Amino acid sequence: MTAIAAPLPTDTSRTAAIAREIDHARTRGALQHIVVPPCPALLARLQAVMLEAEPDLNEVARIAASDVAMSATLIRNANGPLYAVGQPVQTVGQAMNRLGLRQTAAVMTGFLVRNAIVADNRHLRRFWERSAQRAIAMTFIARQLVGLSSDVAHTYGLFCHVGMPVLLQSVKGYGSTMVEAAARIDRSYVATENANHRTDHAVVGALVARVWRLAPEVMAAIRLHHDLESLGSEETEPEVQTLMAAGLVAEHLVRRQEAQLPERDWTDHSAAALAWLQVDEAEVAQWGEELSASLSAF
């Protein structure tokens, strides 16, 4: 499910400062011309249901059945290699029973987000597939750690790079910037984005999280996910740092599954991330083995 926004922490917190930064940039700064698609109405309904102490399964089923393509997505997932046991499921209710409530909500969230924010562009091949892989890896990692909500982790994994398709839709020339940023070795990806457009996908992703009322720690972690020098800093809330560190590990595992070279962030900051999470490289390698079948489903 999508992590729902709680009240922002105190005004002196790093998360509150990021919220003020985003609000200022949106009204008077570089984000004025960024168009953020509205949060889908069905997702807002799903969020409200999942906030209840005992979510109404019938209401979740009604939301799923209100969109034929979403219903088909649930049934396809339930019949996929990770869940298929016995006879294929034929209905939304059967799919929900096989997937379980949390996974049903996660699949629905991914479907709704993917259809709200279009990434059908040659510069973003397999964007939502990789986002779903990252979300699955984040959920798995959360279950290995103490104190990290799997719902919050899944949301962060899904939305981490959402600023990219939003920038591609809103900013002329951003496609060329993506090519340049990926090729340059003299500066970081976000440095190239800022040089060309006075903002970057981390800031725009945080804007999406703010507009869609995602959990404050998700918003802050998206904003800081390339500012990994702050790992271990007393200025940033522990839950935000845990998302950042786990996100770096999740990205590494997804890239390794696809036989890609490690990113610069992993090379430079993996030691700090593992230290923060109190795990070692052998544990991460084991996580990769356990996740392999799930990530291969995409």
Rank of each mutant, 00 (worst) to 15 (best):
I141G: 00
E54L: 14
E180M: 07
T192P: 01
A19D: 12
L214P: 04
L274P: 02
Y83Q: 09
P55T: 03
V85N: 14
N97W: 07
L82T: 10
G175W: 01
L31N: 02
M138F: 02
V203A: 13
E180N: 07
G288S: 04
V254R: 02
A78W: 02
T109S: 05
Y189A: 06
R198I: 15
R122E: 09
A245R: 02
I185H: 14
G147Y: 01
N115I: 06
Y174I: 08
F298T: 10
C39Q: 11
S131L: 04
V279P: 06
D268F: 09
I222C: 06
V152Q: 08
L57K: 11
E129C: 10
N194W: 11
V107K: 01
A95Q: 03
S71R: 04
H201S: 03
A137T: 03
E59M: 12
R28Y: 15
L158W: 05
Q169W: 07
H269C: 05
R14Y: 15
D268P: 09
R256K: 11
L124Q: 02
D280I: 12
T73F: 06
F298R: 13
I136P: 01
T12M: 11
V60N: 00
A195K: 03
T177S: 11
L31H: 01
Q47F: 09
L243N: 00
S150W: 08
D23A: 15
S13W: 00
T139P: 05
A142F: 04
P216V: 08
T91Y: 05
V284I: 15
A181N: 07
A48N: 14
H24E: 15
Q32C: 14
S270F: 07
R125E: 15
T73R: 11
A53D: 10
L82W: 14
G86A: 09
W287P: 08
M164P: 00
Q144M: 10
R98K: 07
H24A: 14
G173V: 06
V190T: 13
M50N: 06
P55L: 00
A132M: 10
V171Q: 08
A195T: 10
I75N: 00
P40A: 05
L57G: 06
A41H: 12
R223L: 09
I22A: 02
H161V: 13
D67L: 08
V204W: 03
I22P: 00
V36F: 01
T199W: 03
E52H: 15
V203F: 10
A220M: 05
F298Y: 15
E237I: 13
P165T: 05
R264H: 10
V166A: 04
E59P: 08
